[in-house]
Write a protein that binds this DNA or RNA. Sequence first.
DNA 1: TCCCGGCAGTGGTCCGACCACTAGAATACA
DNA 2: TGTATTCTAGTGGTCGGACCACTGCCGGGA
Lengths: 255, 255
Amino acid sequence: MPKNDTHMTMRVVNHIRTMIESGGLQPGDRIPPEREFARKLRISRASLRTGIGYLAAMGVMDVRHGVGTFVAEGPPEIGKSSLSLLGALHGFQSWQMFEARRILESELAALAAERGKEQQFTAMSEEVTEMYATVDNPMEYLIHDVRFHRVIAQASGNPILAALMETITSALYDERRKTAERSRDLKQSADLHREIYRAIRSRNPHEARSVMERHLAMAQSAQDLEAAEAGTNGHVGKPQTASAPKRSRAAEKQD
Amino acid sequence: MPKNDTHMTMRVVNHIRTMIESGGLQPGDRIPPEREFARKLRISRASLRTGIGYLAAMGVMDVRHGVGTFVAEGPPEIGKSSLSLLGALHGFQSWQMFEARRILESELAALAAERGKEQQFTAMSEEVTEMYATVDNPMEYLIHDVRFHRVIAQASGNPILAALMETITSALYDERRKTAERSRDLKQSADLHREIYRAIRSRNPHEARSVMERHLAMAQSAQDLEAAEAGTNGHVGKPQTASAPKRSRAAEKQD
DNA sequence: TCCCGGCAGTGGTCCGACCACTAGAATACA
DNA sequence: TGTATTCTAGTGGTCGGACCACTGCCGGGA
């Protein structure tokens, strides 16, 4: 909803947005060099850079020093690093992220069971296999773990939900890496993933949802434990009652 | 997640991030003027602006021309306008947004039933009252509708889920305004909201979830209808099987 | 008292120069 | 000939300093 401002930033954003919507710009495509593009748009290079920076911050563009600027490829991610920033600002808790993830992924699993395609089932199966094969290598295991969940998200047929999940997981992923080495019971984890796979494969949404939920609950307590051992224990609490709503001002958004 | 790059942008981001985490910067606070701040950080004003632009794009900062730069207030929103941009890029469909909303809000309602506080129940009640009072004024009604759902999100005690919902709804909100005038059966809508309220109030998560789901399904079909009448009918489909990977063109006119 | 013009402060835009990085071409070496 | 090294063109990143545009406020005048 970028406004039609006179602002140079928005002029750039809208221009590129139009190019994308008209199909003239596809993921992976490259936009002209800054100097040239700026000349074409009749604006200064600085302003152009502001606009590109805006798009890059939102994950729409991918700027590579010394190479060029491209339309972002790969799975869309909604707030890239904004989650951790906003988290620091509003005091997001670890259990809240897990809760969000649990809700999203459970539903994702159910949808995948309904809409998944053969090809995606195959991909899931392969990742599960790899997980069994790397139960002794936590770092490697984690990679396939992430991929498995990502395939499920794709199979759900809803890229928006997939993008939201990607946002949450990438935030969680950082914490995860710190404790991954301490992982154990990966065999058990793999078993659970296999169960998830089977439920989805047999197109049983209810089963898929519940197994996924079980898996994530287990994963959470496991990570909490690992974190505690590592002493990296940040702010992790339980939803005792509710988070303190210190907000009283309405803060409506009218304009 | 922002790396410790030598990049000026990240230096600024990290610096501000630190100020936020250390509590030295609260929502609503103002940061020093650009010229002064740049001098203090030993970087050029241009670089500082790049960093601030990055934070502003993510909704962490709020820059006001001629006034100053502030830490964002109000309910956190994850990807602000990125959703519509990414949507154009990856061909998000309207039904996908509704589906995402349905899943999020249903769960939000259930959580609110479990964790909501008296004060929030009161706020919900008031909004429902206002809705009944404005059944003849669609625009006004919509405002209270939005507020009602926002209170539920707050009551869920999970600001992350609330932020995700805020992102989806704000994207949907734009479409909504175009067709709001055609709304009818607002009485019926209000009734449904009252039911939701009652379920939450009586701390019945299951009931809350199911009523919310019913409400949103109804809202979706209503809006589809209105949009169709208005001829503004963009790309609205049903989840036939699954969305194609990434080569679907919509490219309708949006603004 | 009220209106309005000016003023100071702050973000927005522009220019033009130079730095830093990358990839590939040209060159040197074995 | 094949491989390693160096050079170079192209591209984004940073700089600083000038000037524009907006906002809020204060003081003078009706």
